[in-house]
């Protein structure tokens, strides 16, 4: 490997390859080994792994102290990778709304907590100065979406467009911020967005926009537990999350974490049930959108 000592390169290279293979072989063992001592907490990849860790690690550290069992953050580079892990049941606990997709349901994740924040809606929006006045004006227009994994940002508004037979040319910005930026730059004439995220963006960027269409409300991403986690442990975890806002220390952790992703109050979670997310399940069963992730 060394440029100055090429004679050593073959043996080092072999060593590295060996170590790499060994690492892959050892990884599941290590995860399994960890499972007996800690719970994995999977998080749908919406942001960079570092931001995700900076947001969740303090919260999980608090909950772990409350519960007495470490909750280990698990995430992936992309949402599909996260969904694949969910689909495999890799996480003991999960923070994701993709668990309601038909292919995920078989693992049986059960909602135990939902965010204290309001329910979210999917919207189709255009700049106020634009000639686009209604969703039908989007026909044959290029409409931007965050990604195929965005539920209210893509799946819900795209479902509406399909049902309203409004053909559009979808483009993806990678995430919410990306597509809102393209809208501001007039790269797209309209965008499918999370209403709350759009509102905060427009407020920050002093952007005036028009809502062309808005969906029914959907509860935001829930925390769900895998059936393999013992109920008393689940209850303890629910309790620990749900009491954080009342606990000064917990509230402080929530506020510090919120600053990482610029999250607005109300912060924290409250106990919830699977029924609170029944409209997700219904949507997935009837949607015309086939390429959501």
């Amino acid at each position: 490997m060394s440029r100055t000592n090429p004679g050593h390169e073959p043996s080092l290279s072999s060593l590295l390859w060996g170590l790499t293979i060994l690492g892959f072989l050892l990884l599941p063992c290590r995860v399994a080994h960890a499972a007996s001592h800690e719970l994995s907490f999977g998080v749908l990849s919406q942001r960079s792994a570092v931001l995700t860790a900076e947001y969740w690690n303090p919260i999980l550290e608090h909950v772990s102290r409350q519960v007495g069992i470490p909750l280990n953050l698990q995430t992936a580079r992309t949402a599909p990778e996260t969904n694949q892990a969910i689909e495999r049941g890799a996480y003991d606990l999960v923070y994701s709304n993709t668990i309601f997709q038909p292919r995920m349901l078989k693992e049986g994740y059960q909602v135990i907590l939902k965010p204290r924040s309001n329910a979210i809606r999917g919207q189709l929006v255009a700049l106020e100065e634009s000639d686009i006045r209604a969703a039908k004006d989007l026909a044959n227009q290029t409409v931007g979406f965050p990604s195929r994994g965005a539920f209210v940002g893509y799946a819900v508004p795209m479902d509406h467009l399909l049902r309203a037979t409004i053909p559009v040319q979808p483009v993806f910005g990678g995430n919410q911020e990306g597509i809102m930026g393209q809208l501001k730059a007039r790269k797209v004439v309209a965008a499918g967005v999370n209403d709350e995220v759009m509102r905060l963006f427009a407020q920050r960027e002093n952007l005036r926009y028009r809502v062309l269409w808005e969906s029914e409300p959907f509860e935001n991403l829930p925390i769900a537990a895998h059936p393999r986690v013992k109920p008393d442990l689940v209850a303890a975890i629910r309790q620990a999350f749900a009491t954080m806002p009342e606990d000064p220390e917990g509230m402080k952790i929530l506020e510090t974490a919120a600053q990482v992703i610029k999250q607005s109050p109300p912060l924290g979670f409250r106990p919830s049930r699977q029924a609170d997310y029944q409209n997700y399940i219904g949507f997935y069963q009837t949607t015309l959108v086939q390429d959501y992730e």
Partner: peptide, 24 residues
Amino acid sequence: MTETLVIGDFSVLEQTLTRYVTHP
């Protein structure tokens, strides 16, 4: 290394270290 570590991708981590060790 941080992102890799958060994700837990040790193979990428090893690649990262191997790349860096080429510094003279």
